Amino acid sequence: MMNKAQTTILIIVAIFAGYALGQQYPLKAAVKTSQTASVSSHPFLADHTSTAPFADVWQNLHDQFIGTLDDNKLDYGAVAGMVRAAGDPYTTFFDPDQTKQLKETLSGSFSGIGAEMGVQNGFIVVIAPLDGSPAQKAGIKTGDIIAAVDEKNITQDMSLDEVVRQIRGPKGQTVILSVIHKGETAPVDISVVRDDIAVPSVKLEVKNNIAHITLESFDNNTAAQFTDIAKQIRKQNVRGIVLDLRDNPGGYLESAVQIASQFLSPGSVVVSERGKTETMHRASGGGVLRGIPVAVVINHGSASAAEILAGALLDNIKAPIIGTQSFGKGSVQEVLDMIDGSSLKVTIAKWYTPSGTSIDKEGVKPTIEVKDDEETKQDEQLDRAFSEIE
């Protein structure tokens, strides 16, 4: 029987990649590796007499193909193709090995280049390189379009997760990315040496009695780390908080709700999910930072759960939003575990801010637009946020 993983994730990331047929269609376990297998020997075909194209292709492949067939790979490939045909870049099937990678990513530790990826206007783009990551050190930038990986062109029929799997690999190995920088037309090749990526989650710096909290992601431990920092801040009696969500690609929805709860009154709407049904996610408990002035900083690399948090603080307590328009990843994915160790990441809903604004493809618009000048050492966005508190 299908087991529902207790995770609802909002990821442009990207780095997630499912054997979706559950107990009725156990494709992995049912097929024999034989070129003479009959059509009726496949439970999927036996139970689904209307699936003539699948049956014909499966049978003819085994009758005519001169090479060796791995029925296990054929089954997973068929399921992956079915999921891909849904036409949603964030709905993806993961075989058992890919599922293991997915769970490593969600735990906040994996091996790769350290860049979150997403889909925009049909292209695979970099949402944000992680601070101090191999990608950042090599020159990968927010907004870069990934044109090729190791000289293999990225085609429009490739899913986000397929591209991410090509980019990831063992520590110490080099991957060559052909990228088109924002505003450019010609690709450039950038070599990146893969390394272990431990995703930092929460950072705190107190300056002029103003707490500068940087959220790098929303992983398994982010909410707990944030709660500890919130208690420190309350004891220090700071004048205000600058919440820095720049280049934060998102992560767990639950983490964003728990963090928002530290600022909001119990029962306040943080975000609503609208899919087959509508679910309202509300603030509960917490409230450690309630009443402390807060300014939020975002940019185009702020996505998913970061946009949820920014929208919740804007709509509920009129927190000023400083920076540039966020990415606009407004769909909700749920990870379903299958009995064979594979998984399905499926888009189940769109999300809306408390005021009813959809963020999908539009992003969160700043109340105070400030562009960061890359030609200067000054952080114009952060400076403006501090001035809002002072």
Rank of each mutant, 00 (worst) to 15 (best):
Q6N: 12
I11C: 10
V13G: 04
V13A: 07
A14H: 05
Q24T: 14
Y25A: 07
L27Y: 12
K28T: 05
A30S: 15
T33D: 09
S34L: 14
S34C: 10
Q35E: 06
S38A: 10
V39L: 11
S40D: 02
H42W: 13
D47K: 15
S50Y: 11
P53R: 03
P53M: 01
D56K: 09
Q59C: 07
Q64R: 14
Q64S: 08
L69E: 03
D75I: 08
A80R: 15
A80N: 13
A85K: 11
A85M: 06
G87Y: 07
F93M: 12
D95N: 15
P96G: 05
D97L: 09
Q98E: 12
T99S: 09
G108M: 04
F110Y: 15
N121I: 11
G122H: 13
V125R: 04
A128E: 04
P129Q: 04
P134S: 06
Q136C: 08
K137M: 09
K137N: 13
K137T: 08
G139W: 05
I146N: 02
A148K: 05
D150R: 12
E151A: 15
K152D: 06
N153V: 15
T155D: 05
T155Y: 15
S159H: 08
D161E: 12
G169A: 06
P170V: 08
V179E: 01
D189I: 14
V192K: 00
V193P: 07
R194N: 04
V202W: 00
K203A: 14
N209R: 07
I210T: 11
H212I: 11
A223Q: 06
A224K: 14
A224Y: 05
A230S: 04
K235E: 12
K235M: 10
V238G: 01
R239K: 14
I241S: 03
I241Y: 02
L243Q: 00
D244V: 11
R246I: 11
R246E: 01
A260V: 07
Q262H: 13
S265D: 09
T277F: 00
T277L: 06
E278N: 09
T279Y: 01
R282A: 06
G285S: 10
G287W: 03
V288W: 03
L289P: 03
R290T: 10
I292F: 05
I292D: 00
P293F: 03
V294N: 00
I298W: 00
S302M: 04
A303P: 11
A306D: 02
I308P: 02
D315N: 13
I321P: 03
I321Y: 01
Q325K: 10
S326V: 05
F327R: 12
L336G: 09
V346L: 09
I348T: 15
I348R: 13
K350M: 03
S358R: 02
K361D: 03
E362I: 08
G363E: 00
G363H: 01
P366M: 01
P366Y: 01
E369P: 06
K371Y: 07
K377A: 10
Q381I: 14
